[in-house]
Amino acid sequence: MSVLYLVLPLALLLVLGALVAFRWAARQGQFDDLDTPALRALDDDEAGRGAV
């Protein structure tokens, strides 16, 4: 059972990592428009929106 003293903080670190990733995604604006990407994903041809 004493492994809990190690595993619990590790698990919480994982949670922290997930939160940091989420915050990054939110600040990038990945959750701003939830309708359009759903429509866009169905097109296989991505060439039209070439990257800069």
Partner: peptide
């Protein structure tokens, strides 16, 4: 409409990107 508007770069050279928010 989304499909077509976002492909404007293919229609007109010089346009680098077009992103449409449908809602």
């Amino acid at each position: 409409c989304l499909w077509l508007v976002e492909r404007v770069p293919l229609v007109l050279p010089g346009v680098l990107r077009a992103e449409l928010e449908v809602s």
